[in-house]
Design a protein around this nucleic acid. Sequence first.
DNA 1: TTTATATATGATCAGTTGTTCATATGATTA
DNA 2: TAATCATATGAACAACTGATCATATATAAA
Lengths: 119, 119
Amino acid sequence: MSTEFEGRCEIHCVHEDNVKEVKIAMLDQDTIMPLAELFKTMGDATRLKLLFALMKKELCVCDLAAVIGVSESAVSHQLRVLRNQKLVKFRRHGKIMYYNLADEHVRMLFAQGLEHVCE
Amino acid sequence: MSTEFEGRCEIHCVHEDNVKEVKIAMLDQDTIMPLAELFKTMGDATRLKLLFALMKKELCVCDLAAVIGVSESAVSHQLRVLRNQKLVKFRRHGKIMYYNLADEHVRMLFAQGLEHVCE
DNA sequence: TTTATATATGATCAGTTGTTCATATGATTA
DNA sequence: TAATCATATGAACAACTGATCATATATAAA
């Protein structure tokens, strides 16, 4: 019924009522974890560049490799990460895989992130 | 004048004009890097919980430790990361450091992120 | 069917990350 | 001043990440 730290904190912490209130409001692990995964996925320069490129145009793997200047293998590996997070979708046309943004959330996250960074 | 991959791609890649166009639009490293750092910072469950807690209330270090159930040392280390990214600010009152969200961008990022995750 | 092309995947490994433990700092109290 | 409390910091280490290289798959062309 109590976590490892509660006992210690009942002696120790400063605002017990605030702690309780915020603890109740706290998002559960099943929400926090996927959210952390999403941000972690966007927390890499290569993947951000891939997403930004796909914000501009539908592109295939070797186009993407050329745009951001890394190997096609590296691009393919990172596209899989983006796919797992449902940040990109793709369609096959013959041998070529065309990648697209999965939805508009990425644009919003990009915009908000840039706003924070550019201050 | 040309990157290591350009030569190879002029033979290889599928849509040279698209590549050029997107390459020109591509954000430069000085923008991408801090943006990646921002998302990377939010890409950790502990730090997300800290931010979420601070979205609800101003809290001190030991309160935060109690809320999310980790050691105060771990909290302090992660708060430094959040401070470096200007995601939180703080004020001292005697021995106690009170932490707050630095601005409203975090709320927007949280909201957008949750929207993506909860689909 | 053989060959070539576009992409995906597995193994490897150096570099990074997050926690823990021990110690240090800075402010209050005795 | 010494002792105590709240927080910060440094070192260390296991766990994770991302690029590379080699290899595999899938489609198309010969």
